[in-house]
Amino acid sequence: MAVHPGRAARNEGTGEADPSLVSIGVVTAITVETLAVREVLDDVVTVHLPGDHHPYHLGTLPSSIESERHVVAVAQQTRDGTRDAAWLCGHMPHSFESLRAFVMCGIAAGVPSDDPGGHVALGDIVVATDVVDYRHERRVDGGDILRGAAQQPGTLWMDADHLVLSDEMLGTPPWLPLLAAAGDPFRRPDPTGRPRAHRGRVGSADLLLRDRAYRDGVARELGLLAFEMEGAGVAIGSQLGGRSWYMVRGIADHGDNSTKSDEWHPYAALAAASYLRSVLARCAPFAPGRHRQRSSSLDPLSAIADALVDLRIMRDEQQRRAVLDLLPAAIRAQIPENSVGRLHIIQTVTTLERYPQGLEVLLAALRLTLGEGSPEFVQAERVLRVNWRGQ
């Protein structure tokens, strides 16, 4: 797939995403949604992991900390609907142990309005402040009563969303340049329009909605801005696993059979994906799945020190000394004492760099302490091997 012109202007990542550092799972329901999310990611690769039949697209996105990036795994559902979405949110953490949050990113049916200020137009963006499973009901004496409570996204997500809203109110929507530069197949069908972002309640159910009267009745009763088919599953699946969630949708139709078509699918999908990139750029990394980007302004020693300071066992003085006690006595005796943790780490590294096997003995001590396959060790080893200046 060709890269759209906006990508060339972005700050690209610096290397292939590490599966052990994935902190965010992006769930999509159909292929055009997957392609749109891939379009806004950096460093994209497709992987098949041992013991997991599901294919994943890995990539990175900027965070609110310039030197660190979110590591994202995109997974497309085998079938659309709330059940498959919930299953995927339960399945992915088995392959990505650092996963801390889920996002549902794709298209939805918007609720039109005669009021221009409240009209949810084709190509607009809807951010879910609540998701309502509107088909989770009980029937009493011929009437239906909603049983499922509204599910709300994580506070961290909405705090970042408020920052995006501030930019929009100042006339500089951060997601608009990516969307405006879109090439085929993501061009806007109506080139004269400009999308708006809405925030509010979204209805979710295993129902492909193509009924204007039903749409208007449920939307009026529950105060809905849009309808979709996966959000309730993502919300419940995330919460059962103790993870936060967020949902952003691009409006591809109005849930009306007389006007239903696929014409707006690509643009609406890219609108949601572009908005997601903007929100994550205002989110701090989801610890512990952090991906430190090596900056051109960061010298190799600082990069190594940062990677080691990120390790809890090296920040704590007692645990750090336990690690250093695993080094050969002749090398350990040459390391100067220092009560300041970061300086002690730097002096340890500069001492070890004078020895031909300095890197390997340090890695052996870390491997023994952290475990060879742990995400913390894998990330630290990668940074040390790239930046080591020793003999």
Rank of each mutant, 00 (worst) to 15 (best):
H344Q: 14
G110R: 04
Q293I: 09
S63D: 12
A160W: 02
A73Y: 11
S339K: 13
N11T: 08
V74R: 06
L352E: 11
V202F: 04
E221S: 12
V71N: 08
D84H: 09
A149R: 14
G200V: 04
D190S: 10
G6H: 03
H48Q: 12
N387G: 10
E33V: 07
M92T: 01
G203R: 04
T129N: 01
L170A: 13
F286P: 01
T192R: 10
R147S: 14
A281L: 06
V131E: 01
G143V: 15
R147I: 12
A205Q: 00
G51V: 02
D211W: 05
Y275D: 01
P93I: 11
T78D: 14
G117V: 11
D141T: 09
C105Q: 06
I346V: 15
A121D: 11
V22P: 05
L222I: 07
R212W: 01
A305F: 03
W87S: 13
H136N: 15
E360F: 01
P177G: 11
H94E: 11
L240G: 10
L49P: 00
V111S: 03
D167G: 00
H54M: 12
W87Y: 15
G154S: 12
R38A: 10
A160K: 03
D130T: 10
E230V: 04
D161T: 11
D316I: 12
H291Y: 13
E168D: 14
L301W: 09
P300K: 05
G193T: 15
T60K: 00
L208F: 13
S302Y: 10
R282I: 05
L49Q: 04
L21T: 04
E16A: 15
P336D: 12
C283I: 05
A252W: 01
P185Y: 05
E66F: 15
L122W: 03
R201G: 04
A333E: 10
G390R: 07
I107P: 01
I345S: 06
A287L: 14
R243S: 00
D43R: 08
E372R: 11
E16N: 13
S64M: 02
R294H: 14
M92E: 00
V340H: 14
H136Q: 13
R243W: 07
P328Q: 08
G217S: 14
V22S: 03
V26M: 09
A75M: 09
A121R: 07
V340C: 13
F377W: 09
F102C: 07
P55R: 04
L370D: 04
P50S: 09
R210C: 00
R290E: 07
V44Y: 02
A101V: 12
E317A: 12
Q391I: 13
